[in-house]
């Protein structure tokens, strides 16, 4: 068996062959996110009413969930993924921050410089979700502080999306494509570029597994449906479906179609998802729904295991030597 693996390693396609394709996929994800975020911001500028903004909010959030599977590079230039989607929020920082901003008569919201300093808990898609979908906040008028806050948050998301897209279309793609070349200070070898993508794919699958699924499932005795991501806007299952679809695109690109088991597992999960009726996962207290969501969790684990094996072999790299040591 060891000999067979060795021979496969020797004769498989050159390692990191899929990085160029992965960069193209990344660029298209971020280009779309920048476009959708811009639409959200310009629509919010036209009218801040929740009913008007909900469809465009969903489209922009969809685009972010897709782009968010790439967890390295320009995302750090805008303050990390939490600065766009602050979740999980166990201590309720988002609601606290919004309330504080509104109580202070909108002064901070009006002042551009002051708003820039506002905690990331009061920005991004989850702050916007509270304002658009939570009846505690969503009954505002067009002249209210809430309305201004909606506009500012949408604009902030669009600016971050724009900045990331700029970096991906130019400088950061170049770093990946010239990995290992003499003047490249970010990726010192082609393996490092491949490893960044591999770590990202596995990290994104782990996020779905542990945070989007296992956390709300809790235990049989104590399920935690309110821990589902974006339950107020009925997005829990949607975010899982969209991120798996994005991972499907990424695995195809990165694996040069040489990750058949991973793609098979992905397609099993993607075709299973529509059979779960409760899009917001709020009825996981019901044993039959719970059983289905647990099945999905197992499917995601299967994808992760297949991806770890197939992509590592195909790319000739592994995920973190130290990161996985646990000491």
């Amino acid at each position: 068996m060891r000999l067979i693996l060795f021979l496969i390693c020797m004769f498989s396609a050159p390692a990191y062959a899929g990085v160029k394709e992965a960069v193209d996929v990344t660029k298209s994800f971020h280009e779309n996110f920048a476009i959708q975020a811009q639409l959200l911001a310009s629509d919010a500028e036209k009218s801040c009413g929740p009913d008007f903004l909900k469809p465009v909010y969903h489209k922009a959030f969809d685009a972010w969930v897709t782009a968010s599977i790439i967890q390295f590079g320009p995302i750090d230039d805008v303050g990390g993924p939490l600065s766009i989607a602050f979740w999980p929020d166990k201590k309720g920082f988002t609601a606290k921050t919004i309330k504080r901003l509104l109580q202070e008569n909108g002064e901070i919201i009006t002042d551009k410089n002051q708003f820039a300093e506002v905690s990331i808990a009061g920005k991004g898609f989850f702050a916007l979700e509270r304002l658009l979908f939570d009846p505690e906040f969503s009954m505002y008028s067009t002249t209210s502080a809430e309305c201004l806050l909606v506009k500012n948050i949408a604009k902030d998301i669009a600016q971050k999306a724009d900045r990331m897209n700029d970096l991906w279309q130019t400088m950061f793609s170049d770093f990946l494509l010239t990995a290992g070349e003499e003047d490249n200070t970010v990726f010192l070898s082609k393996e490092e570029a491949a490893q960044a993508y591999l770590t990202s794919v596995i990290g994104a699958l782990e996020f779905i597994e542990t945070t989007r699924l296992a956390r709300p499932l809790g235990t049989l005795e104590r399920p935690r449906p309110k821990r589902a991501e974006g339950w107020r806007s009925e997005r829990p299952l949607r975010n899982i479906r969209i991120s798996l679809a994005a991972l499907d695109d990424m695995v195809s690109a990165l694996g040069d179609n040489e990750a058949p088991a991973t793609q098979e597992e992905l397609s099993i999960a993607l075709s299973f998802i529509p059979s779960i009726q409760d899009k917001s996962l709020q009825s996981i207290t019901d044993i039959s729904v719970r059983f289905k969501v647990e099945s999905l969790l197992q499917m995601v684990i299967n994808i992760k295991e297949a991806a770890t094996e197939e992509l590592s072999l195909h790319l000739g790299v592994t995920t973190g030597f130290n990161a996985l040591d646990g000491d």
């Binding site: 390295f72 750090d76 010192l188 070898s189 393996e191 490092e192 490893q195 960044a196 770590t199 973190g320 030597f321 130290n322 990161a323 040591d325």
Partner: peptide, 26 residues
């Protein structure tokens, strides 16, 4: 501040700063 580097783990003092090692050979 933060410094980004894949699988960075070893760190030791050096003069008035630091030196690092990582799982990718740097």
């Amino acid at each position: 501040h933060t410094i980004k580097r894949n699988d960075i783990c070893g760190i030791a003092t050096k003069n008035d700063s630091f030196i690092t090692t990582d799982g990718t050979g740097g």
